[in-house]
Every structure is written in structure tokens, then in C-alpha cells.
Measured scan of single mutants.
Amino acid sequence: MQFKLIINGKTLKGEITIEAVDAAEAEKFFKQYANDNGIDGEWTYDDATKTFTVTE
């Protein structure tokens, strides 16, 4: 399945899409990606669109 991350950071904005087995695997990848890029904010997930959003 495809999952999307929308980044609304103070210094980094954009979107990335990955293939993952389930939402838990996608969330783990996205949170590591955000951590690696210094993004720390509020997370939301929309199951209907398979979209995670992080907002700083």
C-alpha cells in the first residue's frame, strides 16, 4: 500500500510517498525520517487517504 507524509515544518515543507505493508510500518519510517531531519511536531493520520501529516 502507498502511504504519504505531508511535512509542514518550520524549515522543511513537502511530501514523500512510500510503499509499506501497513500504517504502523509507514508511521515508523516517517517518524524516523522526521527525526533524522530535525522535525518535531504534532502528528495526524487520515486512514481514508493513507496520509500522515506532521506540523511544527
Rank of each mutant, 00 (worst) to 15 (best):
G14N: 07
E19P: 05
E15G: 04
N35F: 13
Q32F: 08
K50R: 08
G38H: 10
M1A: 03
G41F: 05
T11Y: 12
V21L: 13
V21P: 06
N37S: 05
A23Q: 13
V54H: 01
I18W: 10
F30N: 00
I6G: 03
T53Q: 12
I18V: 06
A20D: 09
T49P: 02
E15L: 10
I39T: 04
T44M: 14
E25F: 04
I16T: 11
M1D: 12
K28G: 07
Q2G: 11
E56Q: 11
T53H: 10
T11S: 10
K4W: 10
K50F: 08
T44H: 14
I6S: 07
K50T: 13
D36F: 14
I6D: 03
L12R: 09
V21F: 08
A26H: 00
V21W: 07
I16G: 02
W43Q: 01
I16Q: 04
G14M: 12
E19D: 15
A26K: 00
G14F: 12
L5E: 00
A20K: 03
E56C: 05
E25A: 10
F3E: 00
I6V: 13
F29K: 15
E15H: 09
W43F: 10
D46T: 15
E42K: 15
T11V: 09
E42L: 07
N8P: 03
T44Y: 12
T49A: 12
N37D: 03
F3P: 00
D22G: 12
A24G: 10
G9F: 12
T44N: 13
G9W: 11
Y33R: 02
F30E: 00
N37P: 01
A34W: 06
D46C: 03
V21H: 11
V21Y: 11
I16P: 01
E19G: 02
A48R: 02
D46K: 06
I6M: 14
Q32V: 11
E56A: 14
N35H: 09
A34V: 06
Y33D: 01
T51C: 03
D40C: 11
N8V: 06
D22T: 04
M1W: 04
D47H: 09
M1I: 09
F30M: 08
K31R: 05
A24T: 06
E27R: 10
K10L: 04
N8G: 11
Q2L: 13
I7P: 01
I39Y: 15
A34P: 00
A48F: 11
L5D: 00
W43R: 01
V21N: 09
E19T: 06
A48M: 05
T11I: 06
A23F: 14
Y45H: 02
W43I: 15
V54R: 00
L5M: 08
E15P: 04
K13I: 08
E42Y: 15
L12A: 03
T17C: 02
F3Y: 10
I18P: 00
D40M: 13
F29M: 05
A24W: 14
A26R: 00
K13Q: 04
I39S: 02
N37E: 07
A20C: 03
K50L: 10
G9A: 10
T49W: 07
I18D: 02
N8F: 11
D47C: 05
I39Q: 11
A26M: 01
V54N: 01
T53E: 05
L12Y: 08
K4I: 11
N37V: 05
F3G: 00
Y45V: 04
A34N: 09
A26L: 00
T53C: 03
I7M: 09
T49K: 05
F30T: 01
N8E: 15
F3Q: 00
D47M: 11
T53A: 11
Y45K: 02
E27Q: 14
F29G: 06
A23E: 09
A26T: 01
K10E: 04
K28F: 06
I16H: 04
V54S: 01
W43H: 01
T49N: 07
G38E: 11
T51E: 06
D40H: 15
K10Y: 13
E56G: 13
K28W: 06
A24N: 12
I6P: 00
G9D: 06
M1F: 06
Y33L: 02
N8Y: 12
D22Q: 14
N8K: 05
Y33T: 07
K13C: 03
K10W: 03
I18C: 03
K28V: 04
G9Q: 09
K50G: 08
W43A: 01
T44R: 13
Y33C: 02
T53W: 12
T11Q: 06
L5A: 03
E56D: 04
G14I: 10
E19C: 06
K50I: 08
F52V: 01
K13T: 09
L12M: 08
K31E: 05
I18Q: 13
W43E: 00
L12S: 15
A26I: 01
K31H: 08
I6A: 12
